[in-house]
Design a protein around this nucleic acid. Structure first.
Lengths: 329, 329
DNA sequence: TGTTAGCATTGTCAATATATGAGTGCTAAA
DNA sequence: TTTAGCACTCATATATTGACAATGCTAACA
């Protein structure tokens, strides 16, 4: 267990380092702790022996280790009130009644990304499990139709449908009506199957050009499930941090950001707000990721912030907390 | 005017530098030009005097200047046949009948970006001038409706509409019918005006809760025009090039990529394929941008590739040419 | 007149040296 | 337990050096 003074010291070091990004020297803390630098050095070396602190080289000041950050987050850090300014910015978003859930989330994460200089990630649960609530088909010209699919959660997807041969508008209408009747209430990821085994046999009875039409619709619907739904905001922010003053590191992170699988791996399973420091996360050892899983009336997803391990943990958590309070229900 | 040999020399230097990214020495070209390095140096210094070549330092090999690239592009470079491999990759996209114009363009630019290690930009003309061909409203639950707007070019936009007070479904239907009747054929950027001055007076006569409903629809439609329509593919590619082995340059370009106005400035006004080398473009002195304006049945936009000045001009142009041939009409 | 061999020159790059300063660890005394 | 003092270490910056890769120039050559 750490003594009171060690706690206080660790707190000062972590917070100073978060602010300045420079290793913290013993001298710098004399005034605050009302003792000499030697005393502080003694305490520091104890903290270092216990792996809470590290040195960047043998005669450098101290820097928090991953364990140090973890201890800070778990035991020292105090919840921080949102500043009026921060709250105001978010409030204006949530006060806007005309937005959908997705917009609330994306916009607030965009703002948070800007406020904190972190990179924001929004991973909407793929709409696989959403139920189809309506299919609408609108002709654009003789060969092109647009099929619009609306799910029970209010998600809208559309696909272009090309009908090469001459197909009568009636046949199209008939097909759409049939599909609509049979497919409403089906989860999106089961649409293909249902089309194949239930709709196809019936269409072929009632619709003239059933072959052509069926294929067109089948193609349009078959890739709905593959939709991934990833949003990144402020990609560059994290790369502006001094810990990424190195082209290799920048390129490495950029590559990961462009890799959908990599980004998808950020998805959170646990409830609440969770912090993954450095090697605790699968994404990249150099970063901390703070994730939160949201659930608003069954619409689930993950919001996350990515930044250097040296981040304002207390502030970020308050901000995420505020969002979660506003969207969870 | 340049002599034959100077032309040949410049060509060799440009192409060698494009391939290797290393300054080209006189010795390296002896074999090809069948003369001694001294002779080549003499010619080189003439080319340098005329600003076609530069040195990175006083005793370095030569590197093409902007003027050198420009001369190469205008007078030396020969059109390059697409390799079977390149063509095949693009062909598979254009052979897919189920795609819309936007998809053709985005997908082929994505592939080209990958093939050339350049960054691709697609700037669709904002759909401002598109005419509205249908408005569809679908209820999601008691408070939320989705308004879907389809334009004559087949673009689909949707907005969530929140109706707080109890409004009857009939009133909503009535409003939608009215709006539909009055607004079809209107250019998107005139919708707000038309709603205000023509639709509003009539709605207030026939619909009960006209105030609430009108406001909801008005809000949903009012930001249609602000839609910008920018797509970037392979952002990281350009930053992987050796000329960007410098965190400052990387950050500078990244910031510009995240700045919508900056990216929008890439839009091309001239017809055909145009090349802007270094300071010839407004975006960034360190890059070359090759732009093409497309026009497919009135749908206009710009496609562009961004990379280091040291890029395979001939290949890139052939690739863009191929796309343009396939989409222009 | 154009080409070339030869050589001094110039700058990069990498390795090495040197000085400076910030910060530590340790020890002995308060 | 705290602290002053000092030796020590390492990063950083700057200068020095030698090897190397080019060049420019000149004088000789075809």
């Amino acid at each position: 267990m750490l003594s009171d003074r060690q706690n206080k010291l660790l707190k000062l070091i972590v917070e100073d380092y978060i602010k300045t990004a420079h290793p913290v020297s013993s001298k710098a803390l004399c005034d605050i702790l009302k003792c000499s630098s030697a005393t502080i050095r003694n305490e520091m070396s104890i903290l270092e022996e216990n792996d809470f602190l590290e040195k960047t080289h043998i005669s450098s000041g101290r820097v928090p280790s991953e364990k140090g950050y973890r201890y800070y987050v778990d035991n020292i850090m105090e919840p921080k009130e949102l500043t009026g300014e921060d709250m105001l910015k978010l409030q204006t978003i949530f006060n806007n009644n005309a937005l959908m859930l997705d917009d609330y989330i994306t916009k607030s994460m965009e703002i948070i990304s800007e406020m904190t200089s972190l990179t924001a990630v929004v991973l909407g649960k793929s709409s696989k499990e959403n139920l189809i609530s309506k299919i609408e088909v609108v002709p654009v010209n003789e060969q092109n139709l647009i099929a619009i699919v609306i799910t029970d959660k209010g998600h809208v997807e559309h696909r272009n449908i090309v009908v090469k041969e001459n197909v009568s508008l009636e046949d199209i209408r008939g097909t759409v009506d049939l599909i609509n009747k049979m497919i409403i209430g089906t989860p999106i990821d089961e649409v293909s199957m249902k089309l194949e085994y239930e709709v196809k046999p019936i269409i072929s009875k009632y619709v003239h050009q059933h072959e052509v039409l069926y294929n067109a619709f089948y193609n349009a619907f078959s890739d709905f499930t593959t939709n991934s739904n990833i949003t990144l905001k402020g990609t560059k922010n994290i790369l502006m941090q001094p810990e990424f003053n190195d082209t290799e590191k920048i390129r490495q992170i950029l590559s990961k950001f462009e890799d959908k699988e990599m980004v998808s791996s950020i998805e959170e399973e646990e409830n609440g707000i969770n912090i993954y420091i450095g090697s605790e996360n699968e994404f990249d050892d150099n970063v901390t990721i703070i994730k939160a899983k949201y659930d608003s009336n069954g619409e689930e997803g993950t919001i996350a912030l990515i930044g250097p391990k040296r981040m304002e943990y207390d502030r970020v958590i308050s901000l995420l907390n505020y969002i979660m309070k506003n969207i969870n229900s």
